[in-house]
Design a protein around this nucleic acid. Structure first.
Lengths: 158, 158
DNA sequence: GATTGGTATATGTTCGAACAACTAAGATCC
DNA sequence: GGATCTTAGTTGTTCGAACATATACCAATC
């Protein structure tokens, strides 16, 4: 495959794109036997760690948006991994909790995360490993800055 | 936001996930004024660079899959950026070409890519910049290795 | 020259992600 | 106590991505 011009215009952007795609594919493929789709495991893990949650809490913790969480919860509910209970203190809200049946999943998920991490990091020596993490965190900070800057611009424009 | 246990189980994986999400969001937000959605610009850019293409060629170049390209082309066609012409040498295939009207997009896209790259890389000095690229390429190699290894496993299992 | 295999593209489905619009329930203030 | 604002969730839509199938068409073999 020849060098696409995307790589010329933005080598880092293009690399992020490809790494993310491969990583998501690999995660999906590792997760497949459990019946979960990528993204659902984050929600489950948070429920296991922190107990019953409101959807709004899940939205802020997962840094997702309300419609996505609504449907993810619906799918997990249909799959039997999650259950809803009315919030006694607020009739608008419901509490999402993992079902007893889902306990079995937890160790699978943890093992998959370990495996995914190891496959991703591969044969990197510890120095490269920590510099990889540092670079990614720097990129994240840059992107957060850029995103919030754009959000403010938009506000000003409106 | 407290540290989610995803970060404990797989810090690099989790960082990739977040960086990719922010990057995709930023790309989408930059692309919005043009009417394109993230992904479509890669296809257009390839058409501009290499002229009329079969979908199958686009599939291999973009490293995507056939159904995705089919629908992306359909949407770009509906939006008026792309046009199909029967391949004179093979009645099964059609050639996808950018419309004259789309020429106007090209410089916008190139500018957006530059902007995206700059926002992503941010204030990194050249040394960090090239090490970032190196790290991402290493991660990509690891993921490709892991993915193809798993593909072979699956074949063996079937 | 009809069957078989491979290629080109399309469709239907499932997901996650983002946006807009909506309902319902709480909270506040006059 | 009634109008208004906010918050919690839902639904509908559009998109990209991946998977399984289906429908053409070409090509080579028997």
């Amino acid at each position: 495959m020849e060098q696409p011009s995307a790589a010329i215009g933005g080598p880092v952007s293009h690399a992020i794109f490809r790494v993310a795609r491969l990583h998501r594919m690999l995660a999906g493929s590792l997760l497949r036997p459990t019946g979960l789709y990528p993204g659902q495991e984050l929600l489950m893990m948070h429920l296991w760690d922190h107990g019953p949650q409101r959807q709004s809490q899940l939205v802020s913790v997962l840094d997702s948006d309300a419609p996505t969480v609504t449907r993810t919860v619906q799918r997990l509910e249909r799959a039997g991994f999650v259950r809803r209970r009315p919030d006694p203190t607020d009739a608008r809200a419901s509490l999402i909790e993992p079902t007893p049946a889902s306990r079995h999943l937890r160790e699978q998920i943890e093992q998959i995360w370990q495996q995914l991490e190891q496959l991703t990091v591969g044969p990197l020596d510890p120095a490269d490993h920590s510099s990889a993490l540092g670079i990614l965190e720097q990129l994240e900070r840059n992107l957060v800055t850029a995103t919030t800057a754009r959000a403010c611009d938009d506000e000003g424009a409106n």
